[in-house]
Design a binder for these strands. Structure first.
Length: 367
RNA sequence: GCGGCCAUGGUGUAGCCUGGCUAGCAUAGGGGACUGUGGAUCCUCUAGGGCGGGUUCAAAUCCCGCUGGCCGCC
């Protein structure tokens, strides 16, 4: 399932073997909630070296329905993606204001804003949906607390997450599909440690950090990751959910993380914020209106090879769909390329130097 | 030529009749936020009463002239 090939301090590179091939770790998954990564095609994703995507069980169960996708031969065929696919359980989405009604020990009551129907989504429902979708890795259904909840509430959500984790494993019947457990515990080190131990003790194929990057201080985020790492079997793949800035990913890799996903690069792209080696730039701003240079000199993405900042700025400000596509291509390429370099550096045993060098440039914005 | 209407940040406008604000709003512009997907949203900063005179304790607001624009008439 998961094999570590080379370690470099805490960082490591290896493989996650799935029903759709061997995925090189560490890797970053663009988010394809509705069975697509917004604005770009599977071919474009492959071209930039994307190993794996993550889609969403809860959202797809509402529309078009997991049964329909199953009838089309599973999510890979449905969306024409033949590499890895994770599915998020829906634990995070269900808490969005759009859907959330209330929690109970049984599951979550939600309301579909499209047709007004309400219903319950339980751990067993999520597992069944993910089975039908046929993703390579299913995620356990968890209870995500808010980042500023008080400790007693965070502890309660953690205990519920643990209970649900057991129910998810019990409901899981698909030997072609792996399942990852999720640890919670908010920003409390003792809870994180406790949760990590508990989830690590269950029979999951991997362990994910949930409830991070949702508003807490970044120092806390890293503390929680460290606390968790100490209590998880080293041989298991470790996934930090929802983490997506270049610096966070590099920092977390240095602590032993293997897998990431986030809307951050794609969403920022749509909102005109683009990655460069010198930090993010707001490409939709007027200062780029006549700049005849690519977003990043030397970048080999389709956008940078063919278009100037001035052109992409014009596309974005004119609200042309093409602008969203060009921006998304660049940001996802930037991250995939960074991770590819990170894997190489780990193999060479020089990851730490690479990280330092990258961050020195990235965090000291030139002007 | 005569008459009427109008003049407020880059742009579009509110307030004027019934003087007394830090001159409001939108958009554009400059920063920032965004992390298990709505292209949204939010925060913040910069920037304004055509010119000259008068009335008044006080004028974007009332009066006169000038300049400029729009409309109508000969």
């Amino acid at each position: 399932m998961f094999k570590i090939k080379k370690e470099d301090n805490e960082a490591r590179t290896g493989y996650l073997n799935t029903a759709h091939g061997r995925l090189k770790t560490p890797f970053f998954m663009p988010v394809g909630t509705k069975a697509n990564v917004k604005n770009i095609s599977p071919e474009e994703l492959k071209e930039m070296g994307t190993e794996c995507l993550i889609s969403n069980a809860f959202i797809l169960s509402l529309k078009p329905g997991s049964k329909l996708i199953e009838e089309f031969g599973g999510i890979h065929k449905f969306m024409n993606w033949d590499r890895g696919i994770f599915t998020d359980s829906g634990g995070f989405q269900v808490l969005l204001d759009d859907f959330f009604v209330k929690y109970s020990d049984e599951g979550v009551k939600f309301k579909d804003p499209i047709n007004g129907k309400s219903g319950w989504f339980r751990p067993e429902d999520s597992v069944k949906v993910q089975n039908q979708l046929g993703s390579d890795v299913a995620m356990a259904f968890d209870h995500v607390p808010h980042h500023d909840d008080k400790k007693s509430d965070v502890k309660a959500s953690m205990n519920r997450t643990h209970d649900w984790a057991g129910r998810c494993l019990k409901a899981h019947k698909n030997d072609k599909q792996m399942m990852f457990g999720i640890i919670q515990g908010g920003i409390f080190e003792d809870l994180r440690s406790e949760s990590a131990k508990f989830i690590d003790g269950l029979n999951f194929d991997g362990v994910a950090f949930g409830g991070l990057c949702i508003g807490e201080d970044r120092k806390k985020t890293y503390e929680m990751i460290k606390a968790g790492m100490k209590n998880i079997d080293k041989e298991k793949p470790k996934y930090v959910m929802g983490m997506g800035t270049p610096e966070e990913i590099l920092n977390s890799i240095s602590m032993g993380a293997d897998i990431f996903d986030s809307i951050f690069p794609a969403q920022n792209a749509r909102r005109g914020s683009l990655f460069t080696g010198d930090g993010q730039i707001r490409l939709d701003r007027g200062k780029f209106i006549d700049e005849n240079a690519p977003i990043e000199e030397g970048c080999k993405c389709y956008t940078c090879k063919n278009f100037s900042k001035a052109y992409v700025n014009f596309m974005l400000n004119s609200r042309e769909n093409f602008g969203l596509r060009l921006a998304t291509i660049h940001n996802l390429y930037f991250l995939q390329n960074m991770i590819k370099e990170a894997r190489k550096e780990i193999e060479k045993g020089s990851f730490e130097e690479y990280r330092q060098e990258f961050l020195t440039r990235y965090l000291n914005k030139k002007e």
